[in-house]
């Protein structure tokens, strides 16, 4: 039962990552150029837009492109090698060579990652490969941070890696990974990976994820130290695979 729940959560994470990426790259047929070029204030909610492709009326976009208007500063896509080095740099790690876990994963997935800078060149397998690579880089980050004293850590100074999400003493349950602790860790990753704070929507999303993660585990599992790392690993993978981590 627990395994099923955890699979659900993992699937949810993957879906979020894929889903957040697909609109940007057009589902292989839909040009999201207009969406990208709109100021952020245009996106209020889906109710405002009705349909994503209606953010800019199609005829306006066509008129712009027909007359050769090229909007400036459209993000470029990083290629396979850049994505790998960007992930290392974002997590404050220097390359430990292709013989490391992250290095071996990079070698195994780089063929699926793009070599083009055009944002429309991304494929589904490329996104999944990005997730896979982020998994190893994040795992390496967590291993590194968990070995350091709290004050020496960059990302997770408030995390008790040697304890579970909860501790039960004499029948009294103490939550170690409180919502505040968890969101502080997520915020730190947002500030480092994205150079900005999380939005309200993102905060809500990650809060829901935390709660789902807790709900998917038994009390015994919640007390296991590996789950502290597990919840942070899932969060790190999602955040390090976000579109803004491999566009510039």
């Amino acid at each position: 039962m627990q395994i099923t729940n955890r699979k659900k959560i993992l699937n949810f994470l993957i879906q979020v990552t894929i889903f957040t990426s697909l609109p940007l790259f057009g589902f292989n047929c839909m040009d999201m150029g207009p969406l990208l070029r709109q100021p952020a204030t245009e996106f209020k909610s889906l109710a405002d837009t009705g349909r994503i492709e209606n953010v800019i009326p199609l005829e306006d976009y066509t008129a712009q492109t027909e007359f050769g208007f090229q909007p400036k500063a459209v993000p470029a896509l990083m290629n396979f090698n850049q994505i790998y080095h960007a992930m290392l740099n974002l997590t404050g790690q220097t390359s430990s060579g292709l013989d490391s876990e992250a290095g071996r994963t990079y070698v195994s997935v780089r063929g699926s990652l793009t070599d083009a800078s055009d944002i429309n060149e991304v494929t589904g397998s490329g996104i999944l490969s990005t997730n896979t690579l982020a998994g190893e880089v994040c795992n390496s980050l967590l291993n590194k941070e968990s070995r350091l004293m709290a004050a020496q850590r960059t990302f997770f100074p408030a995390i008790m890696f040697n304890r579970g999400l909860e501790t039960v003493t004499n029948g009294v349950t103490t939550v170690n990974m409180t919502e505040a602790v968890y969101l502080t860790a997520a915020s730190e990753m947002a500030l480092n990976f994205w150079d900005r704070s999380m939005t309200a929507e993102e905060t809500a999303l990650f809060t829901a994820f935390r709660n789902d993660y807790f709900a998917g585990l038994t009390a015994t599992e919640r007390a296991a130290a590996k789950e502290t790392k597990g919840i942070l690993l899932g969060t790190c993978v999602v955040m390090l695979s976000a579109v803004e981590d491999f566009t510039y």
Binding site: L35, L36, V243
Partner: peptide, 26 residues
């Protein structure tokens, strides 16, 4: 589905923001 759609849009925001904030030093 709503959560997923909202999260998708929220991930797109910084990309759109990057285009209009080119004047900032940062």
């Amino acid at each position: 589905l709503t959560v997923l759609l909202l999260s998708a849009l929220s991930f797109l925001l910084p990309v759109a923001n990057a285009q209009i904030a080119t004047n900032s030093d940062r």
